[in-house]
């Protein structure tokens, strides 16, 4: 009986102690990583500060490729024709509904005047780049927190922290990311974060000859972008994925949705 008692007490003791240790650990970890836990829960500042987005009026896009070219220059994107932060695609729809998509060198050298194909019923250009999704799958899958959504809604990469696993490249539904061949880290459109933070427009928008592309703050009711969205009938790419993209296209045709 007595033996049993001691056993019980020692066991209780053990629980107490281990409980205390666990509690202590928890306290220690709470001092600073709490922020991380909160961040993991997906708290994002909405309604205060800027919340950037992009808009394109496809009626105005002439497919000159200036945006793609300027982006390569501005952001030191490798010259090879498979690395793009921003590029232009030409969609051609034949009368029997076949859709052809072409993007020679991402549109950097422009699109050749096509030998007019009588079969083609309609054709249009679509400039593409990161959609800066509010619920971005690339940020979700990053194992180390190297890809993140900035407080103003721009999806960025922390080059110094990225381990180059390429998971985000797989996760992006819009094919906006690539692994930098020299740095071996993920690279993507930053909405020219270094420019917009200094009050300049992103390079692609600066050089657009027709003013087809604009950017702005979605929280500011007087911004160009909000006006643009209100005045046009904008759609986003792949809405069913629920990634909440912030790249708004006016006059997006069904073939490209």
């Amino acid at each position: 009986m007595e033996k049993e008692n001691t056993k019980v007490s020692s066991r209780r003791d053990f629980f107490k102690k281990s409980g205390a240790i666990a509690g202590g650990l928890l306290l220690v970890s709470m001092l600073d990583p709490l922020k991380q836990i909160k961040a993991l829960a997906g708290e994002k500042p909405k309604g205060k500060g800027a919340w950037y987005g992009i808009g394109v009026d496809l009626e105005k896009c002439i497919g000159c490729g200036s945006c793609a070219k300027a982006c390569k220059t501005e952001n030191n994107v490798p010259k090879e024709p498979f690395f793009f932060r921003s590029w232009v695609e030409q969609y051609s729809v034949t009368a029997n509904g076949v859709v052809k998509v072409q993007s020679p060198n991402g549109g950097v050298d422009g699109f050749k005047q096509p030998v007019l194909d009588k079969e083609i019923e309609k054709s249009f250009f679509i400039p593409k780049s990161c959609n800066h999704c509010a619920k971005s799958p690339c940020e979700q899958v990053c194992p180390v927190g190297a890809t993140f959504i900035s407080p103003d809604g721009v999806v960025l990469v922390d080059e110094t922290y990225c381990i180059g696993c390429g998971y985000c490249v797989q996760a992006c539904p819009y094919a906006c990311r690539y692994l930098h061949p020299v740095k071996h880290t993920a690279d993507k459109c930053t909405l020219c974060y270094h420019r917009i933070k200094k009050g300049l427009a992103p390079a692609c928008i600066t050089v657009c000859p027709t003013g087809a592309k604009i950017y702005g703050d979605l929280n500011d009711k007087n911004s160009d972008l909000v006006k643009f969205i209100k005045e046009h009938n904008c759609t986003v790419l792949k809405p069913h994925l629920n990634t909440k993209p912030k790249f708004f296209y006016n006059a997006l045709k069904e073939e490209a949705e």
Binding site: K135, H240, L241, N242
Partner: peptide, 8 residues
């Protein structure tokens, strides 16, 4: 729940 598409 992880992919949180419209189907969610």
């Amino acid at each position: 729940f992880y992919s949180h598409t419209e189907h969610l």
